[in-house]
């Protein structure tokens, strides 16, 4: 028996053009990308490099202007909106930076919504959604409304919603962008857990630290993929490390922007001095009050 391993995602020369005439901008520039089943891909790059556009095209929220896209063995670059909706429903789970839960529905109904669109009965979808919520660890918040939850809990609920249809692909566009460090860790560990169960995950991030969780890191710049490396779990990816530790060095970009390194460092120093002054002032105040107390005792 011949076993053909088919990639889950295969982008061939995919381009995306926004606007027309003189205002045309190239958001994606001939992207070629193959993602196998079970990969945990981090997509990095500066703002405006086309990361989100790439996610939208891969998640069938947007159509590529040119090129070919095969998702799970089906060519999906030129689908009608209804067909795209069905594939989104059955194959893709979305996690957004701003959570995008429906505020009018409680957490349980939010998580059950993809099942509703699939035509499950109310009892069945409630059961499945409830199970998924306990899997992401917020079973005790089932009947809360999104406005009553913390950021980490909201994103957990959003992950439960993305997972409830058992999708082959999970796309997370800066899932930790609105979270503090505790929430970020919670969410990334949740995603890692899901990945270890065999799901394919694509996520966009600005935080080089988060590449520790990924098995592969893709770098984008001006709509093109400029770097692609596999990275062991637990280590910051090589190029990400550069981004992390080189921020204080003067780059070509800084020159173009007319921002000198001196300005960066100067302003940082100034900030420190101000803080020190404040601290000293406080201390003086304390000392004075102590003196007053001593005097009164005498």
């Amino acid at each position: 028996m011949l076993l053909v391993i088919m990639p889950l995602i295969k982008l061939e020369n995919v381009s995306k053009v926004f606007g027309f005439g003189d205002a045309t901008s190239l958001a994606l520039d001939s992207i070629n990308l193959v993602v196998q089943k079970g990969e945990f891909v981090a997509v990095m790059g500066p703002s405006g490099s086309g990361k989100s556009t790439l996610m939208n095209v891969i998640g069938l929220l947007d159509k590529p202007s040119y090129g070919n896209y095969v998702l799970d063995g089906k060519s999906v670059a030129r689908l009608r909106s209804n067909q795209a909706a069905k594939i989104r429903r059955d194959t893709v789970g979305f996690i957004f930076q701003s959570f995008n839960l429906l505020n009018r529905l409680n957490v349980l109904d939010n998580v059950a919504l993809p099942l509703a669109y699939r035509g499950f009965s109310i009892s069945k979808r409630t059961k499945l959604a409830s199970a998924m919520l306990s899997r992401v660890g917020i079973a005790h918040r089932e009947y809360f409304y999104p406005s009553q939850l913390s950021g980490g809990q909201l994103q957990s609920a959003a992950i439960a919603r993305a997972l409830v249809n058992n999708p082959k692909l999970i796309i997370a566009d800066e899932p930790t962008g609105n979270l503090d460090s505790v929430g970020s860790r919670l969410i990334m560990e949740l995603l890692t857990e899901i990945h270890q169960m065999g799901n394919t995950i694509l996520f966009v991030t600005h935080n080089p630290e988060l590449t520790r969780y990924a098995s592969r890191v893709v770098y984008m710049h001006d709509g093109a993929i400029v770097g692609d490396e596999t990275t062991p779990y637990g280590d910051v990816a090589k190029i990400a490390r550069k981004v992390m530790y080189n921020t204080l060095h003067k780059t070509d970009d800084d020159d173009y922007a007319g921002v000198s390194l001196l300005m960066h460092t100067l302003s940082d120093n100034l900030m420190i001095k101000k803080k020190d002054k404040k601290r000293n002032h406080k201390n003086n105040h304390l000392k004075k009050s102590l003196k007053v107390k001593k005097r009164s005792k005498q």
Partner: peptide, 16 residues
């Protein structure tokens, strides 16, 4: 509009 966007993103068809 935003709600419609969310619903479509998680798989609502036009008919739904």
């Amino acid at each position: 509009t935003h709600e419609i966007g969310i619903r479509k993103a998680i798989g609502a068809t036009n008919r739904q």
